[in-house]
Amino acid sequence: MAAAGGEGPGPEAAGGGEELELTPAQLIRSLEQAWLNEKFAPELLESKAEIVECVVEQLDHMESNLKRAKAGDLKVSVHRMEIERIRYVLSSYLRCRLVKIEKFFPHVLEKEKSRAEGEPSILSPEEFAFAKEYMANTETYLKNVALKHMPPNLQKVSLLKSVPKPNLDSFVFLRVLERQENILVEPETDEQREYTIDLEEGSQHLIRYKTIAPLVASGAVQLI
């Protein structure tokens, strides 16, 4: 997908100083990867805040380029369509994350709490604030409406226990981007033994999410 923003797209798509500079096309590709992974993974994946930030910058840049362009130019509508498409992917990505945060909020917050220092967070600061508010809001509501009218020994409900967990045993389709060796596959029935498989580059598989979760995080495989 070409992501050129009118005349001379800016090369300022560097992410947080530590990442290599990306061309707009690479940036959009990484957004699409993150989007597809997030859409198909059962649990909330690591937040890609830098990508989001860069894409937003890129969109602004393209918008301002369009404003300078002559009205009625054919190129304008092509570029506008491109902006629309990128914005859809971006919105859909963020929306998908919000849905997962709302669905699994006690687990997401618990994971965030037990995260070791220096480990990357699965939530962006804004998402973290949102999740906390959502949790507090829901807890207050349940307490005010029902729990405080219940007998003293029943006034607490553990949201962590009562809100369903993400199902890590669900199956996902994936395409291999980097060759992997000796992936340990857990047995499905009691008669089967554990066994290992090799994943060839470019091959596609249907496999339990739990088995390949680390590979999704490292970017070695792409969920499809």
């Binding site: 989001v52 937003v56 969109l59 914005r87 971006l90 919105s91 963020l94 919000l98």
Partner: peptide, 16 residues
């Protein structure tokens, strides 16, 4: 999210 005005996530529900 998304610059100065923010990004209305309730828009763009279907691919354009």
């Amino acid at each position: 999210v998304g610059g100065e005005e923010g990004l209305d996530l309730t828009q763009d529900i279907k691919p354009p």
